[in-house]
């Protein structure tokens, strides 16, 4: 679903790489955490996937589309396949919960009866049943983030990107939000969540991609936030054994 091949991104020519020769493959229906300290390249990776920026080198494939040679006019079609959630929610203050979610469908030209059906369905999915007529400032942080998630998934994209979605929330609420994302993942949506929330990553036991200074230093299925050295030694041994076998062949 999302494939990065030897992707390097430098914001300034000759400057240090925000993302350095990163290759990874995220399959349809997967849930992956992208972890790392601030400045490790998580957001750069997200922005590359939505083609807000293009890589300095390497190729990116998202939902069957090559992003590097893609002309600007085709970018909107790509973005219709991707829902995005941010740390700061980015809701429209003057619009109610319902209007915020319906806004996406209106912009994309959905028919009235589709909007009437999809919006309540989606609000139900994220657990905001009965809050349709509230304004954003009347909601808690967690509820606002649910609205943002509803807005991201109401058009039923196959991919959901969440850039630090729990960054402004307390641990309990954060766990609730990730549960919502998990629920959406269960409907078949590929979810990629950038985070530096250790507790969340440790509890949910999903695939972990760890970035450090722009390099992908770890890609672990069902990993924790921190490097699990015992497990890593086992995996290194497995790899060595496999390499040995291949060498014997």
């Amino acid at each position: 679903m999302i494939r990065l091949e030897h992707v390097t991104k430098r914001y300034a020519a000759g400057g240090s790489a925000a993302l350095d020769d990163v290759s990874c493959d995220i399959d349809r229906g997967e849930f992956a955490f992208v972890v790392g300290a601030s400045g490790s390249g998580k957001s750069t990776m997200m922005r590359l996937i939505t083609r807000e920026i293009t890589p300095s080198a390497g190729s990116i494939l998202v939902a069957g589309r090559e992003l590097v040679p893609m002309p600007q006019r085709k970018v909107p079609t790509l973005r219709r396949e991707i829902g995005v959630v941010f740390q700061d929610f980015r809701l429209l203050e003057g619009k109610t919960v319902y209007q915020n979610v319906a806004f996406v469908l209106r912009v994309l030209g959905s028919k009235r009866h589709e909007i009437k059906q999809l919006v309540p369905e989606t609000l139900d999915l994220v657990g905001l049943d009965g809050m349709a007529s509230r304004l954003p400032h009347e909601l808690s942080g967690g509820e606002q983030q649910r609205v943002a998630i509803a807005r991201a998934v109401v058009k039923k994209p196959p991919i959901l990107l969440a850039d630090e979605p729990t960054g402004n929330l307390d641990p309990e609420t954060s766990a609730e939000i990730v549960k919502v994302l998990d629920r959406i993942n269960k409907t078949g949506t590929t979810v990629v969540m950038a985070t530096h929330d250790q507790g969340i990553v440790d509890v949910f036991k999903k695939r972990v991609l760890e970035l450090k200074n722009g390099e992908l230093v770890r890609d672990e299925a069902e990993g924790g936030y921190a490097r699990d050295e015992t497990r890593e030694r086992e995996r290194a041994a497995e790899r060595a054994a496999r390499a040995l076998e291949q060498g014997e062949d």
Binding site: T50, R80, I82, V107
Partner: peptide, 16 residues
């Protein structure tokens, strides 16, 4: 600006 950024993110065409 926020409206426009959301429109861009969800894949509205430049005409829209």
């Amino acid at each position: 600006r926020r409206q426009v950024s959301i429109m861009r993110l969800v894949g509205a065409s430049s005409t829209v």
